[in-house]
Nucleic acid binder design. Structure first.
Length: 672
DNA sequence: ACCACGATAAACACCC
DNA sequence: AGGGTGTTTATCGTGG
């Protein structure tokens, strides 16, 4: 109890009287084993950067400095994105608890209102790892876009400066001019290199901070792929090679540039393009460069515009602060919208808004097409559901769980991270019982996100019962001692490396409470086994994917009007999964062959329509592969078939369970 | 409002 | 005595 008090604030709820929030509570409170929680450190500083506005001492800003300034701005924005993301991913507890208070008080746009109570942690819980990953990717993508814009502008400016200088230079000695041009071109080159490095680093940082300990985890590949490094160069290329400035592109901005350039009197300042710009990503994601370098933050009317700045006011969601000029705005941006939970949350919300809008757009487009087709306005190729649908529908229909890692990557910006039909809901905290009902099969989900859970301090979206069961089923002989169960928890989930007292108690509680867990006296003491039938019985075979369910699933993301059609879309796409007949009677098979249903996982787990017989429920290959490779070879395999238990009595046939079996024989049927 | 569930906390018993 | 293990009860929040 007191434990939470310290950290409990996490939940937006000011009145967190209830222990609910304690999930992470003790975690951060206690210096606890910050095994995974490297992020906390990273999280904080974000805002620390400013200061030294006067660094320029000269009062004049060289073009180089201008560039640096802009780069810094851009990078800072990017950094914030990444840091926020990373820190929130890594140490929800630490981070959030501290700042949740502020997170709530922010006025936000209408859209955000609905979400404003979602703290990063909640987001975490709401979103499943793949979703989080997708989010991250999207953020990165967005960020990169921003960066690219910045860079583009910088380049344009540079070119313009060169041009204007050329003209102005008529009065100057040619040599000087030539030098200047050279210098500029060099700068340009350097800048471009820097850009690439920055971007790469940023990406890497995002990854690193996301998975500090996993240099080569599957996750890592994901974001990179998502951001698609290859895109960047292309984009940059589009801007014109260093040697050949894209003069045209620069024209438009030339106006303001010219004016601003005028302010920057000393044009020819030595190309001191900061070589010091070491881009070594710090472990905590703090680019030294950004913080250390004198930061321009203030004075200087930076010529270029800012996506968040328009009509003299800050366009940050919910913020309409008036800023006279860009410089002021930048200042404002850095102070008011620095790295903190609030910004993070807002950012995420914004992303979701965008995503949902995109989905909505796709949906509406589809509808339009259909309408037009119907009206014979044009031959419509009823192209299968476009992006959103495929997205939401694909999670595991074929059992081919797209590798959370790689699959997410291809996900274009359209991929609604939070929309995987099955995962959305599930993302929620373990306590959400709905999670169990229609989230992906725990085993497959686990297999997919094994690394994620293992390293990220995120609470798995499964119930204790599911987890315990999974732990037990993962073993060859399907039985575990309590301690082994504990170990499995800690081994598999970073989250459970923390509040041990709490969850261990919960585990014991669950073991005792649920009939599905059977204690069997063994030579080596007592072991716990799973009575599949009981397990399946536990829950109502009710989740037919009713619209309401789906609705609820996304209710957390409600976006007013958007919702209606969006939900409809989602529902549509989800139904195939949720309503599959197989789900109605998942127990049938399992009741007979408790062991064969490895991933029956949560009963509610959406299973491919094959119901009982067909094996390809969920990509066996993947599942077994992952697990095998990572942790316990063979176990996974065993899962799927009544594999010959090694030596130990088959749990399902062990005494006690047997009795129970007799008692209730046809659970499956009864249910419906 | 009611109920089922799940999470959490805590008291208690038993055993080593 | 103390810790690990089990059991049980109570409370709370969520969601149907």
């Amino acid at each position: 109890m007191m434990v939470e008090s310290a950290s409990e604030t996490i939940r937006s709820a000011p009145s967190g009287q209830n222990g609910v929030g304690s999930l992470s509570g003790q975690a951060d409170g206690g210096s606890g084993s910050g095994t995974a929680g490297t992020a906390p450190a990273a999280g904080r500083d974000g805002s620390g950067r400013d200061g030294a506005s006067g660094a320029d001492s000269n009062g004049e800003m060289s073009s180089t400095e201008l560039l640096q300034f802009q780069q810094q701005q851009a990078l800072q924005v990017a950094r914030q994105f990444l840091l926020q993301q990373a820190s929130s991913l890594n140490s929800p507890g630490n981070n959030d608890s501290k700042q949740s208070a502020s997170a709530v008080q922010v006025p936000v746009s209408v859209a955000m209102m609905s979400q404003q109570m979602l703290t990063p942690q909640q987001m975490q819980q709401i979103l499943s790892p793949p979703q989080l990953q997708a989010l991250l990717q999207q953020q990165q993508a967005l960020m990169l876009q921003q960066l690219q814009e910045y860079y583009k502008k910088q380049q344009e400016q540079l070119h313009l400066q060169i041009l204007t200088q050329q003209q102005a230079g008529k009065q100057q000695p040619k040599e000087a001019l030539g030098n200047k041009q050279l210098a500029f071109q060099q700068q340009l080159l350097q800048m471009q290199q820097l850009q690439q490095q920055h971007l790469l680093n940023l990406q890497r940082q995002g990854l690193v901070s996301l998975q500090p300990s996993q240099a080569s985890g599957p996750l890592q590949a994901l974001p990179q792929a998502a951001v698609c490094p290859t895109d960047l160069p292309q984009l940059w290329k589009g801007e014109g090679a260093p040697g050949q400035p894209a003069e045209d592109s620069g024209r438009q901005e030339g106006l303001d540039l010219a004016s601003t350039a005028a302010t920057a009197t000393s044009f020819a300042s030595p190309p001191k393009v900061s070589p010091p710009l070491s881009h070594h990503p710090l472990p905590n994601g703090q680019p030294t460069v950004l913080t250390s370098r004198r930061d321009s933050s203030s004075h200087e009317e930076t010529p270029s515009s800012h996506p968040l700045y328009g009509h003299g006011e800050c366009k940050w969601p919910g913020c309409e602060t008036l800023c006279e000029d860009l410089g002021q705005f930048i200042k404002h941006l850095n102070t008011e919208h620095a790295l903190d939970d609030r910004s993070t949350a807002q950012c995420r919300v914004q992303m979701q808004v965008v995503q949902q809008l995109e989905i909505q757009l796709a949906k509406e487009s589809e509808r339009l097409q259909a309408m037009m087709a119907h009206l014979h306005m044009r031959p419509s190729e009823p192209k299968p559901f476009s992006q959103p649908v495929t997205v939401s529908a694909d999670p595991f229909p074929d059992g081919l769980v797209h590798p959370p890692t790689s699959a997410a990557a291809p996900v274009t910006p359209l991929r609604p991270p939070g929309l995987g039909s099955a995962s959305l809901h599930s993302g929620g905290p373990a306590r959400r019982r709905s999670s169990d009902k229609f989230c992906s099969p725990i085993s497959s989900e686990l297999a997919q996100n094994h690394e994620f859970y293992k390293n990220a301090d995120v609470r798995p979206p499964f119930t204790y019962a599911s987890l315990i069961r999974q732990a037990i089923l993962e073993t060859p002989d399907r039985q575990l001692t309590l301690n082994e169960i504990y170990n499995w928890f800690t081994r598999m989930f970073a989250y459970f490396r923390r509040n041990t007292a709490t969850w261990k108690n919960a585990v014991r509680h669950n073991l005792s409470l649920h009939k599905c867990f059977v204690r069997v006296e063994n030579v080596k003491g007592a072991v716990w086994t799973v009575d599949e039938r009981e397990y399946q019985k536990r829950r109502p075979p009710k989740m037919t994917g009713s619209p309401t369910l789906v609705k609820n699933m996304i209710s957390g993301l409600s976006y007013g009007a958007l919702n209606a059609s969006y939900q409809a879309a989602l529902a549509e796409s989800s139904f195939p999964l949720l309503s599959s007949p197989g789900m109605l009677n998942p127990g049938s098979a399992s009741s007979l062959l408790p062991l064969s249903q490895d991933d029956m996982g949560a009963p509610g787990e959406p299973l491919p329509s094959n119901g009982s017989s067909s094996p390809p429920r969920l990509s066996p290959p993947q599942y077994s592969h992952q697990v095998q490779v990572k942790e316990e070879p063979a176990e996974a395999e065993e899962d799927r078939r009544p594999g010959p238990p090694l030596g130990a009595p088959n749990p399902s046939t062990v005494g006690p369970p047997e009795d129970r079996d007799l008692e209730e024989d046809l659970p499956g049927e009864d249910m419906s």
